[in-house]
């Protein structure tokens, strides 16, 4: 009985520590104007993604070709103008937000869960298992991330699902390394010893004690990786290996508008700005978080 109460007590201790820590982090984060700007922008994008149907009609404005209205400059009816098929660029950017954020988040989740699992067991158990996992990851790391993603999509075929798999898999080694390092840094702390001493098994120790206490660098890394994944997705779409037309996606909008830049530069202006804003906002948040989590590094 006392065993159990001790477990709960230990856990509560760690939890209260966590809670006060996160309040502290939030307090420091609020002080950073750049992080707050980033947060505001990404909330705006989330809002656009969530309420896309209320902002613009998918079939009518973002997909249907309208030859009579093609290549119109920004105006009150089409605030960002229209593209080479007469589709409203603003509507396509709004709907593109859904794809970018969704694919970005899912692919980072894939990378985080597989890479995180590999990194956690490698770091926690060490020895041969660690060695084996890290050697395999070295192979993946020897291929530049975007090239690995391109290769995977090239083999599997271009689709939204394959795009998520490709970007996700190519980010596995990065996450594995970060999680492994984070686990290594807390593995020998005394509260882990304490948990082991009161009979917690490895799974409980990893999931309830090691991971929550090594979360900080992982959260920062994940935030930055969502940013680079959004960039990766539009890159793949730009070279025709990602989201296929006519589905609105920022990168493929740029690819489509490329031929018209001489006279209609707004075609590539706005989708590009959308990518920059989304990626920049996440980078701002990631930077702010890192400073807030580790004030001495500022």
């Amino acid at each position: 009985m006392s065993n159990k109460s001790e477990v709960i007590a230990t856990e509560n201790l760690i939890k209260t520590k966590k809670r006060s820590q996160s309040a502290d982090v939030w307090r420091r984060l609020k002080k950073s104007p750049t992080a707050m700007i980033g947060l505001a922008i990404i909330v705006l994008f989330l809002f656009m993604a969530l309420f896309a149907p209320l902002i613009a009609d998918y079939d009518d404005e973002a997909i249907k070709m309208n030859v009579r209205e093609r290549l119109q400059p920004p105006s009150t009816t089409h605030i960002f103008g229209t593209d080479e098929f007469g589709r409203d660029i603003f509507a396509r950017i709004v709907w593109g937000t859904r794809i970018s954020l969704f694919v970005g988040l899912i692919s980072v989740s894939i990378a985080l869960s597989i890479g995180g699992f590999l990194g956690a067991i490698a770091g926690y158990y060490g020895g041969r298992l660690d060695n084996a996992i890290m050697r395999v990851l070295d192979v993946l790391l020897a291929i530049p991330t975007i090239l690995l993603a391109i290769t995977i999509v090239a083999a599997l075929g271009a689709s939204v699902l394959n795009l998520m798999i490709a970007v996700g898999v190519s980010n596995i080694p990065g996450f594995a390394r970060v999680v492994r390092a984070a686990v290594l840094s807390v593995k020998d702390e005394e509260f882990i010893e304490a948990a082991r001493a009161i009979g917690a098994n490895d799974f409980i120790i990893i999931v309830r004690h090691v991971l929550p206490n090594s979360m900080a660098p992982i959260i920062v890394f994940a935030t930055l990786k969502v940013a680079s994944s959004i960039m990766g997705i539009s890159s793949l779409s730009f070279i025709g290996l990602g989201v296929q037309p006519p589905t609105p996606e920022w990168g493929s909008m740029l690819a489509g508008g490329r031929a018209y830049i001489r006279d209609y530069m707004y075609i590539v202006m706005f989708p590009g700005l959308a990518i920059v804003m989304a990626v920049l906002s996440l980078n701002l948040i990631g930077d702010g978080l890192r400073d807030a989590l580790d004030p001495k590094l500022k």
Binding site: M231, F238, V279
Partner: peptide, 15 residues
């Protein structure tokens, strides 16, 4: 620098 990191090269190239 942060803006620079956030700009996709294919877009910068077009600009």
């Amino acid at each position: 620098a942060l803006v620079g990191i956030s700009m996709p090269s294919f877009w910068t190239g077009l600009l």
